[in-house]
Design a protein around this nucleic acid. Sequence first.
DNA 1: CCGCCCGTGCGACTTTCGTAGGCTGTCGGT
DNA 2: ACCGACAGCCTACGAAAGTCGCACGGGCGG
Lengths: 218, 218
Amino acid sequence: MVIRAVVVDDEPMVCSFLRTILGSAGDIEVVEEAHEGAAGVEAVVRARPDIVLMDLRMPGMDGLTAIERILQLPEPPPVVVLTTFDADRYVLRSLRAGASGFLIKSTPPEELVGLVRVAAEGHTVLSAAAARRLVAASTDRDAVGDRARELVGSLTEREAEVLSGLGEGLSNARIGARLHLSEATIKGYVSRTLDKLGCVNRTQAGLIAHDAGLVETK
Amino acid sequence: MVIRAVVVDDEPMVCSFLRTILGSAGDIEVVEEAHEGAAGVEAVVRARPDIVLMDLRMPGMDGLTAIERILQLPEPPPVVVLTTFDADRYVLRSLRAGASGFLIKSTPPEELVGLVRVAAEGHTVLSAAAARRLVAASTDRDAVGDRARELVGSLTEREAEVLSGLGEGLSNARIGARLHLSEATIKGYVSRTLDKLGCVNRTQAGLIAHDAGLVETK
DNA sequence: CCGCCCGTGCGACTTTCGTAGGCTGTCGGT
DNA sequence: ACCGACAGCCTACGAAAGTCGCACGGGCGG
């Protein structure tokens, strides 16, 4: 079975290059080319390919927008981003837009063939740098919380319960009601908790509570 | 060039199956098998393979732990997770641990060969479900911020500046000092900002400021 | 057994917030 | 010229928030 591909890139040389490389594999055929986003979407509609290779930086319609349009089609093909620039901040946006891959143009041609096959099968392929970015994007914020969790670890049970109330933006009176304690008591706990956390007011403490994961992010 | 693979899975049948499938491709050879995490790490040390296929659920050492150990070796090979269960919560943990891929065992055998080749080349491969999970994990929290950014959009410039101060847990006096305004002025802005955001106190507003990305997460 | 520390719980006191007005001035639109 | 929206400032007051000191009780070392 031959894999039918559409290439969207504003540089004709890149298109020709890809056509040559992929065509030489025997089972891949570049059936259409486009040099701009909107034209790319039309080409996909016409050709109904098994895979789309898409550049991001283009005159006219943006690559990201084009991806979104393509993904809105009935039974859309997988779209792999193929860009010059290293896995920058576009990785996340591309995948959110629905891309099935993120590769850089410096990928060795002989590897490209296999990547296209795998992507055409419906799997997602990422360059090493892109994968790092993506994982980092879902990890970084956790790292922020480490410091917070450390601080929270030094609190007593009651103090932590109070802190969780602070994280929800509750008043001392409300926290007291929830824990069946007087407002005066809560104030005492808040004061000592602020001290332990190195905060000067409840707003800062509330943020730490969030970072530490004490509060449900509804 | 032959790709040398190590398979780690507690079910011998799975290992045999993979050995057959991958071996039939001609350019892949399963040089070692292991049926437990610790043994898997040792196998990798001995064989120095180009790629490792790793199950997660195993007796003895966990697959995740094994991945971490392998990645600590000098010049570690890419490790691809191959699991029975669909892209569950292990996707994130696996990739954080350093895995270069996450595939399910129901992947068609003929596709598996290409996937192993691509992974051995250093790219990251994900099943469609795994990719969705990963992207969702780095998007969800942003989605939380969408509501927040919408709210913040309705604020005037000054109000937004004040809100950013609230997000840092500053007092009205400090915010005033920073913006060269009187404390009384700040109070006015705070009041109207709380109103616009639907908050009853500055702590809740501070949290919104964070969700909206108004504050640097240092 | 006696301090001693620590967690818990409270009330009194001071400071800060937050609300509700009113006042001036500057824009941009109609 | 008028209106409305934003900016900036003020007064005044009640309601929170935060600080301080103190009391009770359970553990733990001496």
